[in-house]
Design a binder for these strands. Structure first.
Lengths: 196, 196, 196, 196
DNA sequence: GCCTAAACGAGACGGTACGTCAAGTCTTTAC
DNA sequence: GTAAAGACTTGACGTACCGTCTCGTTTAGGC
């Protein structure tokens, strides 16, 4: 095992400079034309420094776009309906925003050819989301709002999919009040049916 | 204007050979490595013949994957719940299948940089789907199952998004009985709430 | 494997370790793939220690390959022919040997872009060689073997060039008895003509 | 075997444009900084077109610098001394000139790691030169100027090496009248001794 | 039955991005 | 205080793919 404390440590500022450069470029030219060379130039960094940290352009952009704090834990609101709204808001905050909107399709495409990226995406995003859903549903059962644990995949698909489709398939503008306001009531009903 | 009847007519078999080659390659190597050169070679066709028919790789693959009969009109089942199940089945038949699964992410990514493809995708797919939804909802209103027209975008996002997320974001296997069986009841409830 | 005694007390052996590493690597992979990193790793030395001693890879390899006693002063044999043979033997001892053979072309190429290296090469090698030639020719004139000082450049070119071409352009094996035996008689004649 | 008449034929002008670009760049910036990208840009050509023709930068530059007519057959002058002068002039015309002078060291270095290039260099240059030498020596024997065939390698090394060393090792300016005038007499004597 | 327009397979073309690698410099920690 | 470890910038390399373009050839409809 290599001793990480030996040698020159990685420069702290580079990660931030890269993240910032990626954000700028995604906004200006989109994912496809957001070149690795352009990122390096914009960040004032050599390409080698990039590939020392991330193993491909996709991983780089993924890391720059999906911050570690990407998915904040939704609070317990006291009701299932409120919790659904919270989850929808959390999903929206992760999927909305100009950076993610322009990066996500490209990332999903590149992820197909890169199982490692799929894994990272899964654990950093889906698994955490799933976890929050489990907590939400457990609380609802404890409260008596649900008789039993609904099909987790179905719940996940409906909540995540509704927001994703709105933004990336239908390309419709975010409704005033966000997805929580527009979808919480109806998706709450859908979850209730599944847990009956 | 050029006289279309002059010159050598286009060879009939090419379209089929190309579609078949694309199908094979998508299954074997995925969208990214499904190269135009590879398609041409596999189909025993020159690249010029491809670009004479389609204006980009994305359009080519799109045409090969999304048949014109991609979205069959769902039948009137007599109840809103039945109609929702029908629509879900129609969406599933369009999004499921090995070819679409491997092609869709790449197509969505390429579509970002190609407004023409977005348009074609939209009119061939989304608009038709939207149309079916309107019919479905109108019938439900006529039957008294809904008090008013629900937010169309929300309905569309929930129905399409649930299936899409299940297949392409969560990468979960299709449930036994299809999405109609798994999602119809709960999404029916969601629609009812929106139309209350 | 971690070596706990890493650090300062290596100062003494570094030059030898580097020379040895360069020798090994030149033999194993040639000049181009004889990387500075590889040299450092093989010598168990940091790159900084190398660049503290030599100002470029070329200087480093040059120093490792061309010993300071690279060109021993040829003895006075009493005849011009004998002296020519001595000089040829001296040149051979400098240019022959597996290390020099694999390093020389690369060094000459790098020297193009590095005037300092040209200077070092010139003074350590060519100037000394030139000096020996002058002595040799002066002695020959004193003996009456030559009527006048021949064109020094021409003599130098013929003696050095014949050996260099044999080894590095024609890539022919060293003749039995060395170049002194094979070339001394004819190059002696050539020199005599020039001094006539 | 592939049918050379199939497909789009290679554009005639590219070879010339590349050769010209290489010549310019060698003169302006030398071999090391004569980049493949720079060559392509200067020639108004894509890199793919270069790598379709030559398998490496070294081959490319080699082909651009060593024209096929690089080594004109020296004429029969009627005397061995005259023939030696002719050969020297031919070698000079191949090794002299600003392009070759700046390219040759780099090429020799790259040739070490590329046996194919060594082979091409050998057959296009050395073998032809060797051939001319054989003819020259045979004529001299027929004339009675030589008693027997001298050691061909030695003759080759002396003639080629003298010119090469003068130009590329000693970096001395070409003598007035060229190498034929300066070296023919003495090297003629050297050859005579070898053929005695 | 020629003539001509348009299609065909093959493959070269310009452009652009990718990911790799080497040289030489700089920075931290360990001894 | 010096040395090893290793991150850094710079910049070239060779590969891959896209969409376009020429070739030489084939296929029909129009004269």
């Amino acid at each position: 095992m290599t001793d990480n404390r030996r040698g020159r440590p990685r420069e702290r500022g580079i990660d931030d400079a890269v993240r910032s450069a990626v954000h700028d470029l995604l906004g200006e030219v989109g994912y496809q034309r957001c070149t690795v060379d352009a990122i390096a130039a914009r960040a004032g960094v050599g390409k080698a420094a990039l590939y020392r940290r991330w193993k491909s352009k996709a991983e780089l952009v993924f890391a720059a776009v999906v911050h570690d704090d990407a998915l904040p834990a939704p609070a317990d609101t006291g009701t299932l309906r409120g919790d659904v709204a919270e989850v929808l808001a959390a999903i929206q905050s992760a999927l909305d925003g100009p950076r993610v909107r322009s990066a996500l399709p490209g990332l999903l495409a590149d992820a197909q050819a890169d199982p490692a990226l799929v894994a990272r995406f899964g654990e950093l995003f889906l698994a955490r989301e799933r976890e929050y859903l489990v907590e939400m549903l457990d609380r609802a059962i404890a409260r008596g709002e649900l008789a039993r644990q609904p099909d987790l995949i179905a719940v996940h698909a409906m909540l995540l999919g509704s927001v994703f489709a709105w933004l990336h398939l239908l390309s419709e503008p975010v409704p005033p009040g966000g997805f929580a306001a527009s979808l919480a009531t109806s998706l709450h009903a859908a979850v209730v049916v599944l847990g009956k």
